[in-house]
């Protein structure tokens, strides 16, 4: 499944938030959206997963027109892990995950053995088997996020949209969630806030500022000192991580920069 977004523009309450963004996620690639708070990356994702109606532009997932298809048709192909996971009602973990089967079911269908197997598999993949009959509201933030991930896995998606999936989580759970997603081997579009994690996990990055794409490319090409200064308004040094050869980012404060004797 390939995601193609073309000239998408979204405004909320008359204010333009996303200004003609085009992007592409190729077959089985993990693509990251980076940008400061309020740059429009969440809004962009929301219009892709049909919560917000864009003013103009197109979004296709392979042959499916995301903007014109029914939510149900889209939900059969695309799973979403968002930031909206507060519930007012209590469910067990397994019940939550089983809701991922909703788009595959007709009005009178009941859950069959196959659904049950898919749900068990999803629970197992996120490592929550011991919690299956626990109540969702008693779980920690990281566990809740894994339940939501499992729910979208139960949709058997061929594409995954993640909106800051690791927000508020401990490092351990951030890595765990991204490792699970990486291991699925499907196309992923993820808004991320941690630049180092984005560099580590993403195949390709889009850097967004004020609703526009400022730069895109592989992490090493996009995450430069100058760009990070321009987009995020912080000073940093980029280095190669000795053990992995990966990309490391060290943020510098003004006096550290002075002490280093450079400007």
């Amino acid at each position: 499944m390939e995601l193609n977004v073309k000239d998408l523009s979204v405004s909320l309450g008359g204010t333009p938030i996303v200004n003609g963004i085009s992007l592409q996620v190729r077959e089985k690639k993990f693509v990251g959206l980076l940008g400061p708070n309020g740059c429009g990356k969440s809004t962009l994702l929301k219009s892709i997963y049909k919560v917000i109606k864009p003013d103009a532009g197109q979004a296709h997932l392979s042959d499916t027109d995301l903007l014109k298809s029914s939510p149900k048709a889209v939900a059969r192909k695309m799973g979403v892990v968002g930031q909206f996971n507060d519930l007012s009602f209590d469910f067990t973990v397994r019940e939550m995950v089983a809701m991922g089967r909703t788009p595959h079911k007709k009005l009178l269908d009941s859950d069959n053995a196959e659904d049950s197997r898919i749900v068990d598999e999803a629970v197992r993949k996120v490592g929550l088997e011991p919690y299956a009959s626990r109540s969702y509201l008693t779980l920690s933030g990281g566990e809740k996020q894994r339940v939501i991930l499992a729910r979208s896995l139960a949709q058997q998606p061929q594409f995954l949209v993640l909106d800051e999936p690791t927000n508020h989580l401990d490092v351990k759970y951030q890595l765990q969630i991204l490792n699970i997603v990486r291991s699925l081997d499907i196309g992923v579009l993820a808004a991320l806030h941690d630049l180092s994690l984005a560099a580590k996990y993403c195949d390709y990055l889009y850097l967004i500022k004020k609703g526009r794409v400022v730069a895109h490319g592989v992490p090493k090409a996009v995450l430069t000192r100058e760009r990070i200064a321009e987009v995020f308004e912080v000073d940093c040094e980029i280095y190669e991580i000795p053990v992995t050869g990966g990309l490391g980012i060290a943020y510098l404060s003004a006096h550290e920069r002075d002490a280093a004797g450079q400007t």
Binding site: Y49, P71, K72, G82, N85, M99, T102, P103
Partner: peptide, 9 residues
């Protein structure tokens, strides 16, 4: 939001 992502309008 979650309902929409589960395919329910």
């Amino acid at each position: 939001e979650a309902a929409v992502t589960l395919g329910v309008n």
